[in-house]
């Protein structure tokens, strides 16, 4: 298929539609509004539903209802809006409902700013909502990968009956790159015989619920879900590496930052320093193994983030003291430059 130039936000929306998502509930917020705008334009043309909700809270609960009714459904927002969605997200996790949530991250806390950031890492991978739950978090780093990851996100959500977050940042949402859309198949996925579509008087009632009043019962439900999470940790980790062989310094970076890190690695090469890159694509499950395996062979690792240091904690857990793990980041909407990252490489090489 011919490649077209598309903004990240629009590419996410189009990919969702190609993945047979026909229900979108959202609320406007910069810098992800193009997703809503695109959905508003396209959904009516493909027989789908676009609904601008009265709030982020309402939007995520509409997602809950539609997911419970068995359809592919998505919402999107940016950081402050995602905070509002956290209640619904916890209920969605607790009721084992599949859906896709897009966070085009901007700077925080509070109203923060509208420029790109990665400071919602903790919120996405460590919880955010209340309770023992996990969410698959996917962080693409190009527009084409955004398309592919959006399609994967729906499949993973359906496969594991859980929420999946696609996490980009303002830059990925706003920039254009050439993309093509792959053929989407969904026939390998489990049937949603648990959904509330009406009993038709032919089966027992289906109940979508996260309330279990007896501790033993709730514990059992949570532990069963934990087994599912363990399976995901064993089978669904995704990452990309570059130049790990003979590298003295390994950068760990995801999303937009990984692209900039690559430019810094090229600068290092010009200066005779061997640097490599581990780019997590799934932030949860986190690529712990490759980081642990790489640690003994390098002088150090540097986590590069658009935050004050969030993913670095998971890298340190993975490295477990085997090599030093440094951090370099910009925050508040500022974006690291290749030169600044290169300076860090040079400092620690």
């Amino acid at each position: 298929m011919d490649k077209v130039l598309m903004k990240g936000n629009e590419a996410i929306a189009e990919a969702a539609i190609r993945a047979n998502c026909r229900h979108f509930f959202g609320y406007p917020i910069t810098p992800q509004t193009e997703i809503s705008a695109y959905m508003a334009k396209r959904m009516s043309k493909v027989g789908g539903t676009f609904l601008q909700a009265e709030s982020e809270v309402a939007a995520i609960n509409m997602v809950y209802g539609a997911a419970g009714a068995g359809v592919r459904v998505m919402t999107s927002s940016s950081s402050p809006g995602i905070s509002l969605k956290m209640e619904g997200l916890s209920y969605i996790a607790g009721a084992d409902l599949p859906c896709v949530i897009v966070n085009i991250v901007r700077a925080g806390p509070g109203l923060g700013g509208i420029q790109p950031a990665q400071s919602d890492y903790f919120q996405a991978v460590k919880g955010g909502g209340h309770g023992d739950y996990r969410m698959i978090v996917i962080a693409p780093s190009s527009i084409q990968e955004t398309v592919d990851c959006t399609i994967d996100a729906f499949d993973l959500a359906d496969k594991y009956r859980m929420p999946v977050m696609l996490m980009g940042d303002g830059m990925l949402g706003q920039m254009m790159e050439p993309v093509s859309f792959p053929e989407v198949k969904t026939d390998h996925l489990p049937k949603k015989d648990w959904a509330t579509t009406g009993t038709k008087m032919k089966r027992k009632a289906n109940i979508i619920n996260s309330l279990y009043i007896h501790p033993e019962e709730l514990e059992e439900v949570i532990l069963k879900r934990e087994e599912k999470y363990n399976t995901i940790y064993e089978t669904e980790v995704k990452y990309h590496t570059e130049g790990l062989e003979n590298a003295d310094v390994v950068l760990v970076a995801y999303g937009t930052t990984a692209r900039i890190a690559k430019a810094a690695i090229a600068l290092a090469k010009q200066n005779g320093i061997k640097a490599g890159l581990i780019r997590p694509i799934t932030l949860w499950p986190f690529p712990t193994d490759i980081i642990a395996k790489t640690a003994p062979n390098v002088k150090c690792m540097i986590s590069v983030e658009m935050s004050t240091g969030q993913m670095v904690e998971d890298i340190r857990l993975a490295v477990n003291g085997v090599c030093p793990v440094h951090f370099y980041g910009r925050t508040g909407g500022a974006v690291p430059t290749p030169t600044a990252i290169f300076e860090q490489i040079r400092r620690y090489a």
């Binding site: 459904v73 509330t196 009993t199 979508i208």
Partner: peptide, 23 residues
């Protein structure tokens, strides 16, 4: 005896909206 969904506090009309729009 019909299918049921349990909503978060106060969110039932939003959940109902999602269900109705789906089916």
């Amino acid at each position: 005896n019909c299918d049921m969904q349990e909503a978060a506090h106060g969110r039932a009309p939003a959940v109902a909206t999602g269900i109705k729009r789906a089916n």
